[in-house]
């Protein structure tokens, strides 16, 4: 299943509705919903908050594909090239006073998913995330 929409912060409810629709119509396991909701929110919000240009928001393409042995979520955007996987890992052992406020989103995605890949292809940032079914 696929969805295409502008990468705007206010579109998050639509993005989640798409994901919930996938779960209902494909009949996916309930225990996989939370990690995919989290991954999709983090990646979509990253594009919405940092991915656009002065000309306007990026276009975001979302697809969810169940294969035989795994469930794969793809999020692409036509914004400036940006590889979120190249970002430094936040220091999750730092004490309260030193914990940075940001940078946790992509870290959570990497931890909650079995695999994440990034590719810059045909003018788009393409992230793919998966977990075994």
């Amino acid at each position: 299943m696929q969805a295409t929409l502008p990468g705007e912060e206010g579109r998050l409810p639509e993005v989640m509705a798409f994901l919930h629709g996938c779960w209902e119509s494909i009949g996916l396991p309930e225990e996989l919903l939370f990690p995919f909701e989290l991954a999709l929110e983090e990646v979509f919000m990253n594009v919405a908050m940092h991915g656009g240009t002065a000309a306007g928001p990026s276009t975001v393409w979302i697809d969810l594909e169940p294969a035989e042995d795994r469930l794969e979520l793809g999020v692409s955007d036509d914004g400036p090239a940006f590889d979120p996987l190249a970002m430094a890992t936040p220091d999750i052992d730092a004490p309260l006073e030193e914990r940075p406020i940001g940078g946790l989103g992509i870290y959570l995605v990497r931890e909650m998913m079995a695999g994440v890949s990034y590719e810059r292809r045909d003018g788009r940032n393409a992230l793919r995330m998966w977990k075994p079914l």
């Binding site: 939370f34 909701e37 989290l38 929110e41 983090e42 919000m45 309260l96 006073e97 914990r99 406020i101 940001g102 946790l104 989103g105 959570l108």
Partner: peptide, 16 residues
């Protein structure tokens, strides 16, 4: 029943 990094940020700011 759901918490993302945006929510974690609230907890962190709250703790500080």
């Amino acid at each position: 029943d759901y918490l993302s990094s945006a929510g974690l940020r609230c907890f962190l700011i709250g703790a500080r």
